[in-house]
Write a protein that binds this DNA or RNA. Structure first.
Lengths: 144, 144
DNA sequence: CTAACTGCAAAGCGTTTGCGATGAG
DNA sequence: CTCATCGCAAACGCTTTGCAGTTAG
């Protein structure tokens, strides 16, 4: 339901930036908009192919790269040597990866964000970005 | 001066673990021990070659991987799609990367470490690892 | 119409690996 | 001696790219 809204937002942003809206770009935009996980390129390609099998993986690579450069999506690297993508959302968040299942949990912690700025500041730097992933195992006690 | 101490520590650890101490392993161990930066494999290979040009890069790859598995070195990925290595030191630290120069500054912040545990805990997870890098630009005001 | 985009297949890059030769224990 | 390790070169997985054909604006 919300997907349509986000989808048209992506298309609108592309038009605002003067990008040609090809059929392929619409498909990739739609796939990324409706993704609720963090798919790698292969997976994005798979989902696109289900919509239109004529799309090539080279185009998917080019398109996600373009979207990232335009700030429409974020690229992540969760340590498996392949890029994962997620649509840019208004609220910043970081990720906790379940090392047993590979599940990715998003979280947001203002104290953490603030602390990072303070640390950078104390080293004489202005923080312009960060990468932060937590790796954890589900606590036994929680199942009780 | 301190290098010799660390070097013999690496060799001793290898022997403790029953690893054959080949000439190549000693060279890689020495190079990593004396490195004060975070060299990638190509760079480690270069430095090894200056000591003994007969070493092959395949052996360097195999050796850093072995050392990492044995806990002698840590592997990092600072976003340039190649692994960087640094000798394991007793005190844990994270990294701030100067986005202009590529310089890597190490820092240690207990509050940050603790906060990560708390966040993981609040999500129902036990923290088993983390990846964290800050990216920053040198503040103007510091030059004054 | 034409500049931008696409599909294809080849190449690029960091990394791993099969193999026969070498060397540590 | 014997098995782990080595050097070499081929292969690997992910990603990028040159080119000729296609398409949005």
């Amino acid at each position: 339901m919300e997907e349509n809204i986000r989808d048209s937002v992506i298309e609108k942003m592309c038009e605002d930036k003067g990008l040609k809206m090809t059929e392929q770009r619409r498909i990739v935009a739609r796939v990324l908009s409706s993704a609720e996980d963090h798919p790698d390129v292969e997976e994005v390609y798979k989902r696109c192919s289900e919509i239109d099998e004529r799309i090539s993986i080279a185009t998917v690579y080019r398109t996600v790269k373009l979207f990232e450069a335009e700030g429409l999506v974020h690229k992540h690297d969760f340590g498996d040597s392949k890029a994962r993508y997620e649509i840019s959302s208004s609220c910043h968040h970081d990720h906790l990866i379940d090392v047993n299942t590979g599940e990715v949990i998003e979280f947001n912690n203002e104290t953490l964000e603030e602390l990072q700025k303070v640390i950078a500041d104390s080293l004489g730097y202005e923080l312009v970005g960060h990468r932060m992933e937590l790796y954890g195992v589900l606590k036994e006690t929680k199942k009780k």
